[in-house]
């Protein structure tokens, strides 16, 4: 069965220049393995292909547990010079949560 990440995880977006950071935090720690396996850097890059032009790097925080995605060239020039509405990309946490994953 396919579900949205929104159903099992939460996220906060942050920005540094033209780089977007997205956390992905499971509500239940037992869902972390599923996120680790399916929400790869490549899968996120593909899901956000209309938004992120550059590389996506994934960090695993086993201590929380959570994943952190760092997306390059994601904010069309950055906070101050971008023509987009959401220049910080602050709303993009919910773009990540639109991604679908398979659950047993």
């Amino acid at each position: 069965m396919k579900i949205k990440l929104y159903d099992i995880a939460h996220s906060r977006a942050g920005d540094k220049g033209n780089t977007l950071t997205l956390s992905l935090i499971p509500y239940k720690p037992e869902h972390f393995a599923l996120l680790q396996e399916q929400v790869t850097a490549n899968a996120v890059k593909n899901h956000l292909k209309e938004i992120v032009a550059g590389e996506v790097t994934r960090y695993e925080l086993l201590n929380l547990p959570a994943l952190q995605f760092v997306c390059q060239q994601a904010l069309t020039g950055g906070v101050t010079t971008s023509l987009t509405m959401d220049t910080h990309g602050k709303s993009l946490s919910f773009a990540l949560l639109e991604m679908e994953v398979d659950v047993p």
Binding site: H10, S11, R12, G14, D15, K16, T19, T21, S23, I25, Y27, Y59, L61, L62, N63, L64, A66, Q68, V70
Partner: peptide, 29 residues
């Protein structure tokens, strides 16, 4: 949940968070 979201907010590399004071490591918090 609120603390986790904030811990990772705007963090470019959780193992190497640069400030003028230190290169901090958030991965054992």
């Amino acid at each position: 949940a609120t603390a986790k979201e904030q811990l990772l907010y705007e963090v470019m590399d959780p193992g190497r968070y640069f400030t003028p004071d230190v290169i901090a490591d958030f991965t054992q918090v």
